[in-house]
Design a protein around this nucleic acid. Structure first.
Ligand SMILES: Nc1ncnc2c1ncn2[C@@H]1O[C@H](COP(=O)(O)OP(=O)(O)OP(=O)(O)O)[C@@H](O)[C@H]1O
Length: 766
DNA sequence: AACCAAAAAATTTTT
DNA sequence: TTTTTTGGTT
């Protein structure tokens, strides 16, 4: 470990900081994560802190894995002992070790978002509340928020009838979770905090145990996470937090920037270290990003400079529609790859997942391998969740949500009515569904066929449970075969049945693989690993070279040589500021600032090259609309950027007939009335911009020509303005312009024939 | 109970 | 536009 070589002077100060609270507040790419990594390594190697006495929290499992790997390189195998993970994973680990004090039983199930919503819907039904008055999504959001703030049902404000309903549902939902021996994501934090608050001996034990706490990305922690840190700190207060208030992008799910901005007030005596040098990006990239975030009013101004070269200007590209935009991205990626830049060193970002599809199509069209991070995740697919539900039921027989999921998968003649009867009976008898199913014959009004199926299922479940000793992989395979689910999928003649079968096979493979990688593999451990996966975990490096596609949120903390941001339009990025939906001006302002920070995060992921693309028109959620360029593009310093207009956007006037309301087609109740606000897609009438350069003009090629050129090169058609070409009919001429479209076209000036537009592949270079 | 067609809803961002 | 829910038929 060579601190002098690997760290700047302020970084070293943070790494060498002795005891007491430490705050590293610094801009993007300034080496904050490196500080945590080296500090952990040094605490172990030089200060002599025992690795398992260190707790370091990262934002994603992937970040944790990378940090562990780096520490391992600095420290050796002891790195495996460090408590290193996300808040959720860390809490799950604590709760697994001390389930009792938290009010759980060992092998409790962790419910993901979906499971939790399912249970909430069920509770609403059981409480005889009209679901129309009380949408499960809405209630779930309230419960989540409450848990993030560490509030129970009785702490909820009651200002409306929905508040009152939500409070009742929350109370019953929590009671149900305990009954089912389950915890939702929020509970992982809530139960851990409550356990520490209420059990002094355990609190003291853990305070004694963890001599040092370190938290990365502290700007996006919420109240209960802050509380957890407070509870774990002993009188030496060895806590090191790092973050950047400009990168706080999770306010919407309860993150409190205050946690970092007021950290030194909450912990008097905090040593504050600022890092002002960016090591990641070129000067142009940094200047562009800084110009966007600088406009925020509520921020702590900070210095950020770089010794890196100015590099290429940031490219701003206007496309006619989302397909042209996607095509341009695909071509640029291919061109960069042809120049030797691996796909994994590039990345495409977007504001919302719905944008990925058209990009995927364009990439498939060019045979560019890609991976979509987040979105519809593998473990969220119905067929995968079905098998997982069986497995969860083996580990936790009280898991009624899982039972209801699989009770008729594969179809075994237990329909809605029978399932409902079973549930009523179980509730009256105070039994879990699986236990009630074992004696289904005793239930009044239960059809004989359904009763037989239920008893058989119960029998199978207990047989598989007995087989758990054979290992997770073996049991999973048996469940898939013996439940008849495999048969059902094989017999299914629908077009995507094959994919579903493959997905389940992949799940079985994933279980085997996980089993091999762990010394004491338990099914319960695997299930936890699956549920606590974060989006970017899929990006683990060992796979083949693929282009990552992700939302800007998922990109936080990552870096790539070249970054493409698609959809830089007002109404899409910034998103969600529509005046007619969001009346509260303060809230609007706060959201706009968060969108700005989001743009800052997106741009500062780029090391060398940054492309910002936007479309004049876009089809999203059904309807086609005109979108003005993102206001963030207007903030970019002119001397750090270069603008280009793709052919589809040049004949803009043809496109700008008045568009109806700027809202999703499905919610449109006629044209929008009144003020649409400054945000959101509006009708734009854009004069065609930059004319193509005359061929004899000495000016350097415009970006659009450059784009066309890189695209052409990628297609194996390397034409530049000025090249001499031969055409079978017109003879030899000189290229004066390039144009993209479905086919690359070039404009050629032929002596005697004049200027001709030709499809490039019919022309030969001479 | 199972299946299919028609109607309704949904779209930020995620652990 | 796509996905989920519903209602009606077999
Ligand atoms: N002292 C240094 N000298 C050279 N390179 C460094 C130094 N410190 C960090 N880097 C490099 O700079 C890049 C950014 O570092 P790091 O990810 O630690 O920054 P960060 O502040 O956590 O970034 P962000 O907040 O944007 O996620 C990395 O590629 C890292 O290897």
């Amino acid at each position: 470990m060579d601190l002098a070589r690997d760290l700047s002077e302020p970084q070293r100060r943070a790494v060498l900081h002795d005891e007491g609270p430490l705050l590293v507040l610094a801009g993007a790419g300034s080496g904050k994560t490196r500080v945590i990594t080296y500090r952990v390594a040094r605490l172990c190697a030089e200060v002599g802190v025992i690795p398992w006495r260190i707790l370091a929290v990262t934002f994603t499992n992937k970040a944790a894995g990378e940090m562990r790997e780096r520490v391992r390189r600095l420290l050796g195998p002891d790195a495996g002992q460090i408590w290193l993970g996300t808040f959720h994973a860390t809490c799950a680990r604590l709760l697994r070790r001390w389930p009792g004090p938290a009010g759980l039983q060992p092998d409790f199930t962790i419910y993901d978002d979906d499971d939790s919503r399912t249970l909430i819907a069920r509770v609403i039904k059981d409480l005889d509340i009209d679901p129309a008055l009380c949408p499960p999504r809405e209630v779930q959001a309230r419960i989540d928020r409450a848990k993030q703030d560490g509030r129970g049902p009785d702490d909820l404000p009651v200002r409306s009838s929905l508040d009152e309903l939500a409070r009742r549902v929350y109370a019953e939902y929590d009671a149900r979770l305990r009954q089912l021996n389950a915890a939702d994501f929020g509970d992982l934090l809530v139960l851990t905090v409550r356990m520490l608050e209420r059990h002094e001996p355990l609190r003291e034990e853990l305070r004694e145990r963890f001599q040092h706490l370190l938290v990365d990305e502290f700007q996006d922690t919420n109240r209960i996470q802050f509380r957890l840190i407070e509870l774990l700190l002993n009188e030496r207060r060895n806590v090191c937090v790092v973050g950047d208030d400009d990168q706080s992008i999770y306010r919407w799910r309860g993150a409190e920037v205050k946690n970092i901005l007021e950290f030194d007030r909450r912990f008097p005596g905090t040593v504050v270290v600022r890092l002002e040098q960016n090591y990641r990006s070129t000067r142009n990239v940094l200047a562009a990003a800084a110009a966007v975030v600088r406009k925020n009013v509520s921020r702590h101004p900070k210095e950020l400079w770089t010794a890196n070269p100015a590099g290429e200007p940031v490219k701003v590209v206007l496309a006619g529609d989302e397909r042209e935009e996607a095509g341009a991205v695909a071509r640029l990626v291919a061109a960069a790859q042809a120049e030797g830049l691996a796909l994994a060193d590039q990345a495409v970002f977007y504001r919302i997942h719905a944008q990925s599809r058209v990009l995927e199509e364009a990439l498939r069209g060019r045979n560019i391998p890609y991976v979509v991070v987040g979105g519809f995740r593998f473990f969220e697919r119905a067929e995968v969740k079905n098998l997982l539900a069986y497995l969860r039921l083996l580990v936790n027989p009280a898991d009624d949500v899982s039972f209801l999921r699989i009770v008729n998968v594969p179809v075994r003649g237990v329909g809605k009515v029978s399932a409902e009867r079973l549930a009523d009976h179980a509730r009256a008898a105070g039994l879990p569904l699986a236990a009630a199913a074992a004696r289904a014959g005793d239930i009044a009004d239960m059809p004989a066929a359904a009763a037989r199926a239920l008893t058989a299922l119960a029998g199978q479940l207990s047989a598989w449970r007995d087989a758990l000793v054979e290992g997770p992989g073996e049991v999973a395979r048996r469940v898939f075969d013996e439940s008849g689910y495999r048969q059902a999928l094989e017999n299914d003649r629908s077009p995507d049945a094959e994919t579903r079968l493959q997905n389940v096979q992949e799940l079985l493979g994933s279980i085997e693989e996980w089993t091999l990688e762990h010394s004491e593999p338990t099914l319960s451990g695997y299930l936890e690993h699956v549920t606590l996966q974060t989006a970017v975990d899929e990006l683990d490096g060992k796979a083949a070279d693929r282009l990552p596609l992700m939302t800007v949120h998922s990109a936080k903390g990552l870096e790539f040589d070249t970054v493409y941001v698609a959809g830089m339009e007002d109404g899409l990025f910034p998103y969600g500021l529509r005046q007619d939906e969001l009346h509260d001006q303060r809230e609007r302002q706060a959201r706009l600032e968060e969108e700005r920070r989001l743009a800052y995060v997106a741009m500062t992921r780029a090391r060398r090259r940054l492309w910002l693309l936007h479309s004049a028109h876009r089809q999203l959620f059904g309807g086609i609309q005109a979108y003005p360029p993102s206001r963030f593009l207007g903030d970019l310093p002119k001397d750090a950027i270069e603008e280009a207009v793709l052919p589809g956007a040049r004949q803009a006037s043809a496109w700008t007939e008045p568009q109806p309301a700027a809202r999703p087609a499905w919610s449109r109740g006629g044209p929008a009335r009144g003020d649409r606000g400054r945000s959101g897609p509006v009708v734009v009438r854009r004069a065609p911009r930059t004319q193509p350069q005359p061929w004899n003009d000495p000016a350097p090629p415009t970006v659009e020509q450059e784009i066309c050129q890189t695209m052409a090169e990628a297609a194996g058609l390397a034409f530049r303005v000025g090249d001499r070409v031969r055409h079978p009919r017109f003879g030899v001429g000189r290229v004066v312009d390039l144009e993209t479209g479905a086919e690359l076209k070039i404009a050629v000036e032929f002596p005697g024939w004049g200027r001709k537009k030709l499809i490039a592949r019919f022309v030969e270079r001479v």
